[in-house]
Design a protein around this nucleic acid. Structure first.
Lengths: 128, 128
DNA sequence: CTAAAGCCTGTAGTTGCTACAGGGTCAAGC
DNA sequence: GCTTGACCCTGTAGCAACTACAGGCTTTAG
């Protein structure tokens, strides 16, 4: 397939596919005589793997490691497990941070809503 | 005060202060004859405002708008309220996304833990 | 034969900082 | 008087992970 067809198959922008090639996430495809990239099923599966992993928030570096592990004949489940656990920890840290923000923003919002003030109490709180 | 003292007062890296000046978030300070930046209380309060807002996840653009609103003699609480609500929506969208990731990662983790497989079931799922 | 759609490379922009390199300034101590 | 160290300056480059052109080929449909 050509790049556009791969992009359609994986629902991923063409530019992103070329980008993954440039940063050496996606293996280099073959080329037709006219210079067009030529992809096969293997590429489609790797691209899907990358997209799924990124969709779970793994960094490029982590995806690279996952791909190395997946590429072995005898996948090392222990390592995969460790990667997943570590990343889960990161995700939970971000969750905690966002929840903190949510609480604070809710507080600001309530202040804005609670009655009549000369000046805005939310701005006051940010200024304090 | 000099930049180092402001940085210490607000617990913020010096580089960040210069950066905020460059992108025109923080008003330009005066200069001493030797070229050193010279800050006063007003700068300290603005910098705190910026740091607090950023800590709540507001983008630079949003902080700029908040600052404009805060700078008026008659702060428009309605606009502030709208900014806060919009941002709260964004934060909640990110929360939902992260929770989705958390669930999926937890699923992967459990698969890795649940017994003996020939190959890693987590990798299988990413590959599928 | 021409127009549109598809592909190519290479580079620059995004957000919000952070990290130098390569200098100038200033107060304290010997 | 001179050095040492802490502080400050500008300007540029780097990070993640894309996204968006510009400027140019090729292929396909009518």
């Amino acid at each position: 397939m050509r790049i556009g067809q791969l992009a359609a198959a994986c629902d991923c922008p063409i530019e992103t596919i070329r980008y993954y090639e440039r940063v050496e996430l996606l293996p280099r495809p073959g080329r037709r005589p006219n210079g067009y990239r030529k992809y096969d099923e293997r590429h489609r599966r790797w691209l899907n793997f990358i997209l799924k992993s990124r969709g779970l928030g793994f960094t490029q570096e982590e995806v690279r490691r996952l791909m190395e592990l997946a590429d072995q004949s005898q996948p090392d489940c222990t390592r995969v497990h460790r990667l997943v656990r570590t990343h889960l920890r990161d995700v939970r840290a971000k969750l905690a941070e966002l929840r903190r923000m949510e609480r604070a923003l809710l507080g600001l919002k309530r202040k804005c809503e609670s009655g009549e003030f000369e000046d805005c109490p939310a701005l006051d709180e940010l200024m304090a």
